[in-house]
Amino acid sequence: MHKLQAIIFAVLTAAPAAAHDAKPTAAQPNGWTYPFSCCSGFDCREIRDQAVVEGPRGYLIKLTGELIMSRDTRIKNSPDGQFHQCTVAGEATGRTICLFVPPRSF
């Protein structure tokens, strides 16, 4: 096979990248899928409520000290009412790509 044909074959047969699913909860018994814009298959996970402090300016991620302002487009509604965080390379200390939040308490 010529080099160009091999490249074309590799591109056409490569599996598309896909997001992964959040674990099932009482609110979402079948789980739900993280959007691809937030997750490339391993970047997202549920985090404990205690890991995030909600305040009038936004959400403080305790582990990193990162403040995500209330109107930041990285904030998404959580389909299951739990916090979920998607970070660069899936690292707990990585920069937040998306933060799924339960309904606001104030």
Rank of each mutant, 00 (worst) to 15 (best):
H2E: 14
Q5M: 15
Q5T: 12
Q5I: 14
A6V: 13
I8K: 14
A10T: 15
P16M: 14
A17P: 09
A19N: 06
A19I: 04
D21Q: 09
A22T: 00
P24Y: 06
A27P: 05
Q28L: 09
N30M: 13
G31I: 05
T33L: 12
P35I: 02
P35Y: 01
P35V: 04
F36H: 03
S37N: 06
S37F: 02
C39F: 01
S40Y: 10
G41E: 04
G41Q: 05
D43W: 03
R45H: 03
R45L: 04
R45I: 00
I47T: 08
D49K: 05
A51M: 09
E54R: 09
G55Y: 05
G55F: 06
P56I: 12
R57Q: 15
Y59R: 01
Y59E: 06
Y59W: 11
L60Q: 12
K62R: 15
T64H: 11
T64V: 13
G65A: 12
G65T: 08
S70D: 14
R74Y: 00
R74C: 02
I75P: 05
G81T: 06
V88Y: 09
V88I: 13
A89E: 08
G90R: 01
G90Y: 00
E91H: 11
G94M: 10
G94P: 09
R95D: 04
P102E: 08
P103N: 11
P103T: 11
P103Q: 13
R104E: 14
